[in-house]
């Protein structure tokens, strides 16, 4: 059996310098490799035409190029696309492409499954199956039809990004470096449930925006929705956020899924305004689309609007996120769980 080769795609410039050094190639080869990997649309080492045949053969002996095309694509009537990538045997990850006027936002996964067990999340029902490498994260942007016109990236797909922080930071480095995709970090948002130590490191080592899944300001209620509250209470998360400057271009936002009769009351508005007092932030309200086995439902539109208006009246800029791709299982985890289950039945 042929040994599994290392992948070039997903390596940083420093790692590519190491690759070049290990193969006895000049240091500038690393820059050429980065150029082929991240700036040109090729799919094999053999296509790196400014490298000599001998160098390409040397590389091919030890490495594969490393990009993977999606295994399945679903297209919503509203233009949203859901891509399914296979990362290993029976392991699926999802990527959503959301077009909106002149913007194309890609929602990437950072793990296969998730460990966090949030009550309202479909991905949680898969359990945790593995980490994605930086290459597998960036590949979700690179290998979709819209790759050339992606304007924004959100780490809000499957998994908890701060539970795979090394690879997430590496993927952001590839996306934002001049030798990589050269994107502005201000076009990247990483969403987390708030793993405090990792959040501190993320804020220190990257310039991307931060989004925190809040969902309720009350301790006991959050515990029943999100087990992470036991280890990292939201008050501690907010306390850590207060140490950072968000008055410039860098943004922090709070994601808030509304659940009927649970977290959509005036008491919640009041407590949210107390909790977030003094932080320059925004709240994104999200309509809940029920997942199997979950007793939660979304409130009606009137309640959602009233909740939004109350928060805005309190001085917290609040918007309601448009629901997209409902006809294609756009809620994270639905499609891959469906695919995983159908494969298990074979």
């Amino acid at each position: 059996m042929e040994p599994i080769k290392e992948l070039l795609f997903g390596k940083t410039l420093n790692e590519l310098i190491q690759v070049s050094t290990d193969l006895g190639l000049p240091k500038f080869t690393a820059g050429q490799l980065a150029d082929w990997l991240y700036k040109k649309q090729i799919g094999s080492i053999d296509e790196m035409s400014n490298l000599s045949r001998k160098v390409r053969e040397l590389l091919t002996e030890k490495y594969d190029f490393g990009t993977v095309l999606p295994a399945k694509v679903q297209v919503s009537t509203d233009g949203t696309k859901k891509y399914l990538f296979v990362t290993g045997k029976h392991q699926f990850i999802e990527t959503a492409m959301i077009p909106d006027d002149d913007r194309i936002t890609v929602c990437v996964s950072s793990q296969i499954g998730c460990k966090m067990g949030c009550l309202f999340c479909m991905t949680a029902k898969q359990g945790f199956q593995g980490q994605l490498s930086a290459g597998e994260i960036v590949n979700q942007i690179r290998s979709i039809d819209e790759a050339a016109s992606v304007s924004n990236i959100v780490y809000m797909g499957m998994g908890e990004p701060f539970d795979n922080l090394d690879e997430v930071l590496k993927s952001i480095e590839i996306l934002t470096s001049e030798w990589g995709y050269g994107m502005s970090p201000r076009r990247i948002t990483v969403s987390s449930i708030g793993i405090v130590p990792a959040m501190g490191r993320f804020l220190r080592e990257s310039e991307a925006h931060l989004a925190i899944s809040l969902h309720t300001p009350f301790d006991e209620q959050r515990k029943s929705l999100m087990p992470v509250q036991i280890a990292y209470p939201i008050a501690e998360v907010v306390e850590e956020i207060r140490k950072w400057d968000f008055t410039g271009q860098r943004r922090v936002s709070f994601e808030y899924i509304l659940f009927k009769g649970l977290n959509d009351t005036s008491i919640h508005v009041k407590e949210l305004s107390r909790l977030l007092n003094g932080i320059k932030c925004r709240i994104n309200l999200i309509r809940f689309h029920p997942v199997p086995g979950t007793p939660l439902v979304s409130p009606d539109e009137e309640t959602i609007l009233h909740f939004k208006n109350q928060l805005n009246d309190k001085g917290i800029f609040t918007s309601v996120r448009a629901s997209r791709g409902q006809d294609i299982y756009a809620a994270c985890g639905l499609l891959s769980t469906k695919e995983q289950n159908s494969n298990l039945k074979i």
Binding site: M116, G117, A124, S224, P227, I230, A231, P295
Partner: peptide
């Protein structure tokens, strides 16, 4: 995580209010 999620779903199906369920993962 997977045990916690499976057991939680099962308890909810059996009529236990989710507010009565506390999980450490």
């Amino acid at each position: 995580a997977l045990m916690v999620v499976e057991v939680r779903d099962l308890l909810i199906r059996k009529g236990v209010p989710y507010g009565q369920i506390y999980a450490e993962i």
